[in-house]
Amino acid sequence: MASEQTVHMNGGQGDTSYARNSSLQNAEQNKMRPLIEEAIADLLSTGASLPRSMVVADLGCSSGPNALTLVSICVDAIRSQCLRSRQPPVEVCIFLNDLPDNDFNMVVKSLVAFQQSHRSVVTGVMPGSFYGRLFTSGSLHLACSANSLHWLSEVV
């Protein structure tokens, strides 16, 4: 299928790598902070007790320093909401998705440090195209994407 062509960023840490040339994308992701915080506040402000766990996915995470930006914002917003509502912390499962040609070695290395600083977070990678099925029905509480949805030509 033409819409599933393999397009990916330059991996590694070299001069032309995405990791070294993605400050513009990082700025755009950080602009999404208020939207993510509002979405999580809406999701968790039902008045009832919060769920024991949540599953969040970043579709098109890429690699390098930006790979964890959106999910970090999500985890911080979930923790803030727990504190605001005086509820126990929610366990969070994070899935990072990108095409199989992504430099997942860099992503996994970033996840190790992320998990050490966020003890109640479980992480994983989900390689594949979001044109197909990636997750089981009803398994995600929140899906976010900053710089990959422009590849969509239709709602799937």
Rank of each mutant, 00 (worst) to 15 (best):
S3Q: 15
E4C: 11
E4H: 11
E4F: 06
Q5C: 11
T6D: 12
T6W: 07
V7A: 04
V7Y: 12
H8I: 13
G12M: 06
G14M: 06
D15W: 01
S17E: 10
N21D: 11
N21M: 04
Q25D: 12
N26M: 08
N26A: 14
N26E: 12
A27S: 13
Q29F: 05
N30W: 00
N30S: 05
K31Y: 00
K31E: 01
M32V: 04
R33Q: 13
P34T: 00
L35H: 10
E38G: 02
I40R: 05
A41Q: 13
A41N: 06
L43P: 02
L43T: 01
G47M: 08
A48W: 00
S49V: 09
L50V: 02
L50A: 08
M54S: 03
M54K: 00
M54D: 02
V55Y: 10
V55C: 15
V56S: 08
V56E: 08
A57E: 11
A57N: 10
A57T: 13
A57P: 11
D58K: 12
G60Y: 00
C61R: 01
S62G: 05
S62W: 00
G64A: 03
P65Q: 13
A67R: 01
S72E: 04
C74K: 01
V75N: 00
V75D: 00
V75H: 01
Q81M: 12
S85T: 13
S85P: 02
Q87H: 07
V90C: 09
V90P: 00
E91D: 13
V92D: 14
I94D: 07
F95N: 08
L96W: 02
N97T: 00
N97I: 06
D98W: 04
D98I: 05
D98Q: 04
D101H: 13
N102V: 13
N102R: 05
N105D: 14
K109A: 12
L111R: 03
L111S: 02
A113N: 09
A113M: 08
A113W: 03
F114M: 06
S117W: 00
H118M: 04
V122E: 14
G124P: 00
V125N: 10
M126Q: 15
M126L: 13
P127R: 07
P127Q: 07
G128A: 10
F130V: 12
Y131A: 06
R133S: 15
F135C: 06
T136P: 00
S137D: 13
S137H: 14
S137V: 10
S137R: 14
H141S: 12
H141N: 13
A143K: 03
A143Y: 06
A146I: 05
S148V: 06
L149M: 15
H150A: 05
H150C: 09
W151F: 07
W151P: 05
E154H: 15
V156W: 09
